[in-house]
Structure formats: structure tokens, C-alpha cells
Amino acid sequence: MLMEALAALAAAGGGAVVQAAGTDAWNGMRQRVGEIFGRGDAARIPAELERLDHTARVLAPGDTDGTAPQRLREEGVWAGRFEALLEGLDDAGREQVAGQLRDLLAFVAASAGDTAVATGTAVARDGGSAVTGVKHSSGGHRGPARAAHTGNAEATGPGSTAVTGIVTG
């Protein structure tokens, strides 16, 4: 497997951990990540679960000052951990963990849904529309969505609409 592909997979794994934090997907994702890092050693899993719990605490809603930087930091931490794990395995182990990571990504994508955090300002003028957050259009993705700390919405002029948060329909 190409190292670039492994790095991309590790980065996606880091993103999945952060995306799942605070969602219904967290417990299932948490257990899967613990097992990936435990590598069959049940004694190692509790330490991995504690690391994940630390991430969940850091990313808990309510800390509006550091949300975006903390999310980026935690995503990088987990991406680095996944990458180091993959690099330290033989080919068979690497393929096994890569498969587990792909399964994890599919699980989080299906469970956590769309997430928007720390977005900018939505500005619409002169009949335009703008959304900062998550927008589902008719026939689009249906499932859970989460918006936290989205920016401001500003609409000026007739027919203009601006929304911050989640729009369905």
C-alpha cells in the first residue's frame, strides 16, 4: 500500500474521531478505535479508551473559545497515532488495520451524519442565499446532522436569505 494512501487513511481516521465526538456514533466509534489500537491485547484497550475520553472532554460543547483550534489539534493527534500504528506494522497487519479503519470511517459516516463546527458568516445580498452550517436539499442526504458554533447570518435586499445552522428540505 502506498505511504500516501496510508497517510490519507490515517488523516481520515483522525477526522472520524473528531467528527464522532459528541454524537450518537461516539460509543461505537470509541470501542472500535480501542480495539484497533489494542491489537488483540485486552489490557491495552482501557488506556486507549481513556485517550478517547480525553478527546471527548476537550471537544465537549460549551467551550466556545477554543473549539476550532482544539478540533484541529485533536484531529492531528489521532491522525498521527493512526499513521504511526500503520507504519509500525508488517504488511499483513497493515492491511488488517487499514481494513478496520475503512470500516470505522463507514460506520462514522453512517452514524454521525453531517457536521459543521465553527463556520464563518453567511452573507446574502440582492436576492441571493447563503448558508453556514449543514444544508440538505430535497432528495439529498438524510440522517443525523450537527451544527455547533456556526457563524452569523446576514441577508440584505429583497428575496435574500441567510441561514446559520441546519437547513433541510
Rank of each mutant, 00 (worst) to 15 (best):
V108D: 00
G143F: 10
R71C: 11
Q96C: 07
T115M: 13
G34I: 04
T132E: 01
A47R: 07
F107H: 12
V77F: 14
T55S: 12
Q96K: 14
R32H: 14
A122P: 07
G93N: 08
D90S: 13
V33F: 02
R51V: 01
W78V: 02
L85H: 00
T115C: 14
I45W: 04
G34Q: 07
T67P: 00
D126L: 13
R51L: 10
D103C: 01
A47T: 04
A124Q: 09
H54R: 13
E48I: 09
G127T: 06
Q70W: 05
A68F: 09
L59A: 03
D65E: 15
A118N: 06
R71A: 13
R125H: 11
R32I: 09
G76N: 08
I36C: 04
R71G: 08
A124T: 11
G38L: 05
T121F: 05
L86E: 00
R32S: 13
F37R: 05
A130D: 03
T119Q: 06
R57W: 03
D65Y: 10
A109R: 15
I45G: 01
W26S: 05
T67W: 04
R125T: 13
K135E: 14
K135T: 14
R125S: 13
G88S: 09
G143A: 08
G34F: 04
R94K: 11
V33A: 09
A116Y: 04
H54T: 14
I45H: 02
A130K: 04
M29V: 07
G80H: 12
T121G: 05
G99N: 07
L105F: 03
A56L: 14
P46S: 01
